[in-house]
Design a protein around this nucleic acid. Structure first.
Lengths: 191, 191
DNA sequence: AGTGATTTGGTACGACTGTGCCAGAAAAAC
DNA sequence: GTTTTTCTGGCACAGTCGTACCAAATCACT
């Protein structure tokens, strides 16, 4: 195993350590010491890559949002509009273990953003971006649709609700059920 | 102003203090001292009503869930099915400042339930109850509907997504927009 | 009024927090 | 080979955390 020397990779590995701690103990369990231990670093060394703990949190959250954005952007287009829309939506849903873990971390950060201005800025930006995506999906399915705003919010709320449920009750909100819900919604929209 | 002497009222006022602290500083800001100060008590006195801090949190969360349940149960029935369904849904949504505050607290506790077994039990029970409510609403609108499970989850996810958005972005997810979304959804279901 | 139970305020303890700081190791530059 | 920079580990500090404990105050009841 090659040693990680690139500072940016080191920061990324710290972020991954943050994610693991968040999943195990929640965002409250994230301290300088727990993260350092999880990343295999000493607290003093950790401080060399991140000046403050707030910087650690902001970086770890930003990386989550970046991953979601990258996945959505990487969706290959499809001649069939409904198929293209479905693919984008399914990239936003935690349909496998990795993305469910990602969603858990997202929820933790999103909730803390409620009382942390720095994280709130990140959250609001990603909220706007996702709302825009949902707007594009809606326009693709229903061009010049009256009541567009409500239709966009309906899709966005449905997606976030599914994500929330998959995090809270993965035994209930299974990938199969989430797909069925999306199927039904898209079928109704294109009818 | 009469003095509060009833122990149960005292506990409720402590829970209210917890809610205020949660809204101001998040669930992390809830400590024995901050809650005691917010409730106008000394830490030692607080411990006389709650043996542990975990008990304080469980009680405060339970009271939130009780309020939601009481509101849903208090919905007066209506001969028109669609109207009755809409009324129940609108009781679940944070359409005014008070219920939005309630939703903020709910989100904080729900997120912590992810890593706190005691709170998780409360959350899971209320999740099941709300899922059951959504099932009844769905059955009322669409009796003997094929794919009932997906339809129920679609409604439940939509509601929770709207709640989540109202908490995160009250400027975007306004009461008017939420009503419009629900309107559109119900119109589509009954079509 | 007196007695026993309840309620209150406050202190103390060990554990944990973020951050500041520094000496030594490792690496890089010359 | 020497110097300079980067990196690492660890200690110290002030502060907060939950909880245990206790004496004083207040209350209820005879």
């Amino acid at each position: 195993m090659p040693k990680i020397v690139d500072p940016e990779e080191r920061r990324a590995s710290v972020a991954a350590a943050v994610w693991r701690v968040v999943r195990r103990s929640g965002l409250d369990g994230v301290s300088v010491r727990t993260v350092a231990a999880e990343a295999g670093l000493s607290p003093g060394s950790l401080r060399h890559y991140f000046a403050t703990q707030a910087e650690v949190l902001a970086f770890a959250m930003q990386l989550v949002l970046d991953r979601v954005r990258a996945r959505v952007e990487a969706v290959e287009p499809d001649p069939d509009t409904a198929t293209a829309v479905r693919r984008v939506i399914e990239e936003l849903l935690p349909l496998d273990a990795e993305r469910r873990a990602e969603a858990e971390v997202w929820l933790a950060f999103t909730t803390r953003a409620q009382v942390d201005p720095a994280l709130r800025a990140l959250r609001d930006a990603s909220y706007d971006a996702l709302e825009s995506v949902c707007g594009q999906l809606t326009d693709a399915l229903l061009p010049d649709h009256p009541g567009r705003e409500a239709e966009v919010e309906r899709l966005y709320a449905l997606i976030d609700g599914l994500v929330l449920h998959a995090v809270m009750r993965p035994d209930r909100a299974t990938p199969a059920l989430m797909r069925a819900v999306v199927d039904r919604h898209l079928t109704e929209l294109t009818r």
